[in-house]
């Protein structure tokens, strides 16, 4: 988990399993090349605090929780992102939450892990519901990769796939 204050950096990328939070209105938070992963975006429009989590897997187990990069799991990343947002001044009741990703990139392949995208979507929805957080926008499923950009100044979330136009969710 990393909190960025962003004095000079205008673009912050959340890599696999990372959480990034920023209150710099000039900054864009991104998850690049999202396939079966989920980019979870949260924004407090009053405090203008934005956070993004690059979730890789649906659910942790006991041994996973103690690992350094445990925020790759939805059930760990979501509470951590909420905590980090609050620590940076965001108020839970004001949060606007959007999700993108969960593709099934290997729809024709038959190895056992390739429903990860679907399981990630289900897990993120379940954990958000348990946290009483409403999903305000989403672009999930399908079989294409996505790049997700969140503009801290306005809270806009933009999703782009290869060969397609960028769209706001």
């Amino acid at each position: 988990m990393v909190t960025e204050s962003c004095v000079q950096e205008k673009s912050i990328v959340a890599n696999l399993g990372e959480i990034k939070v920023s209150g710099d209105p000039e900054t864009v938070l991104s998850c690049l090349g999202v396939g079966s992963c989920i980019a979870l975006c949260m924004y407090d429009p009053e405090a203008k605090i934005a956070g993004i989590a690059h979730i890789v897997l649906p659910k942790s187990n006991d041994s996973a929780r103690s690992r350094e990069n445990a925020t790759k799991y939805a059930d760990i990343a979501i509470p951590e992102l909420l905590q980090e947002m609050r620590r940076n001044g965001a108020v839970r009741s004001r949060l606007v939450t959007k999700i993108a990703g969960g593709s099934q990139m290997f729809k024709a392949a038959s190895t056992n892990n390739f429903d990860t995208g679907t399981r990630n979507i289900e897990s993120v929805r379940t954990v958000l519901a348990e946290e009483a957080i409403k999903i305000d926008g989403e672009d999930v499923g399908g079989n294409k990769g996505r790049t997700v950009r969140m503009f801290v100044g306005e809270g806009k979330v933009q999703v782009k796939s290869v060969g397609g136009p960028a769209k706001e969710i």
Binding site: L16, L32, G33, V34, G35, S36, C37, V56, L57, S103, M105, F106, N112, N113, F114, T116, G117, K144, G145, R146, T147, S161, V162
Partner: peptide, 13 residues
Amino acid sequence: DMAGAILFSALSD
């Protein structure tokens, strides 16, 4: 597609 999207999906397991 985006190479990362494909690679990361395979890496999830």
